[in-house]
C-alpha cells in the first residue's frame, strides 16, 4: 500500500515540478509548490514517523504561504522570461525530459548508495533535485529562485530522511526552509522597493 502511495507521490512530483518550470503565473507556482510538499510528505513517510514527516509538510506550506502573501502584496506583473531564447515552453519541456531520463538512469544506483531507501523515494528525490537545479539555471526572478531552492532542498530532505532520523536535523531543516522563504520574501520586497516608495509617495 505504502509503495503504491509512494509511486503516486512520484507522479505528483513529476506534474508539480514540470508545472513549476512552465508556470507563468505566481499563483499557480505557489499552489504547485504546496502540492509538491504533500508528495514530499508521502515519500518521507516511508522512513519517518508521521509526526516528523508532518513537520516537513507544515513548514513547507507555511513557507509557500509566506511567499504567496508577500507576492500578492506586490503589484508588479510576473517577469516574462518566455521571450528569451532558449527559454520557451518547448525548450523547458525538452530540458525536463532530459532531467527525467538522467534520473531514471541514476535512481537505481543512488538507491543502492543510500542504504536501499526505495526506488520510488530515490526517484522522487532525484526528480526534485534535478528539476530544481534546472529551474535555478533558467531564472533570475527572486520568487522562482526561492521556489527552486526549496524544491532542491525538498528532494534532499526526502533522501536524507532515509538515512538520518534525528529530531534535531528535522527541526533545523524545517527552520531553514522557513528561513529561506522569509529571505525570499525579504528579497522580493527589496526588489520592489522603488515601486513601494512610489506608491507610498502617491
Amino acid at each position: 500500500m505504502m509503495l503504491t502511495f509512494s509511486w503516486v507521490a512520484v507522479v505528483v512530483i513529476v506534474i508539480t515540478s514540470v508545472g513549476l518550470l512552465l508556470a507563468r503565473d505566481w499563483r499557480s507556482s505557489i499552489i504547485l509548490l504546496a502540492v509538491q510538499y504533500v508528495a514530499m510528505f508521502t515519500l518521507c513517510l516511508s522512513h519517518m514517523p508521521l509526526g516528523m514527516a508532518s513537520v516537513k509538510v507544515v513548514s513547507g506550506w507555511m513557507s509557500a504561504a509566506t511567499l504567496g502573501m508577500t507576492r500578492s502584496s506586490l503589484s508588479t506583473p510576473d517577469i516574462d522570461e518566455e521571450n528569451n531564447w532558449p527559454r520557451g515552453i518547448s525548450f523547458r519541456l525538452f530540458a525536463a525530459g532530459m532531467v527525467g531520463i538522467i534520473v531514471a538512469g541514476a535512481a537505481p544506483r543512488v538507491n543502492l548508495m543510500m542504504a536501499d531507501a526505495g526506488t520510488a523515494v530515490t526517484t522522487g528525490s532525484l526528480l526534485l533535485i534535478g528539476m530544481g537545479l534546472l529551474h535555478l539555471g533558467l531564472t533570475a526572478n527572486i520568487l522562482r529562485v526561492t521556489i527552486s531552492l526549496m524544491t532542491i532542498l525538498s528532494g534532499f530532505e526526502i533522501l536524507y530522511a532515509a538515512v538520518e532520523g534525528s529530531v534535531l536535523v528535522t527541526a533545523l531543516l524545517a527552520t531553514i526552509i522557513l528561513g529561506l522563504a522569509l529571505v525570499g520574501a525579504y528579497l522580493m520586497l527589496a526588489a520592489n522597493a522603488e515601486e513601494t516608495e512610489e506608491t507610498e509617495s502617491v
Binding site: 527572486i142 529571505v183 525579504y186 527589496a190 526588489a191
Partner: peptide, 18 residues
C-alpha cells in the same frame, strides 16, 4: 546555512533592489 540566511538582511537593505 542558518547563518547564511541571516546574512541576507545584513547584506541588502529593504529599500534597494538586491
Amino acid at each position: 546555512e542558518m547563518a547564511v540566511l541571516l546574512s541576507i538582511p545584513l547584506l541588502t537593505s529593504l529599500y534597494s533592489p538586491p
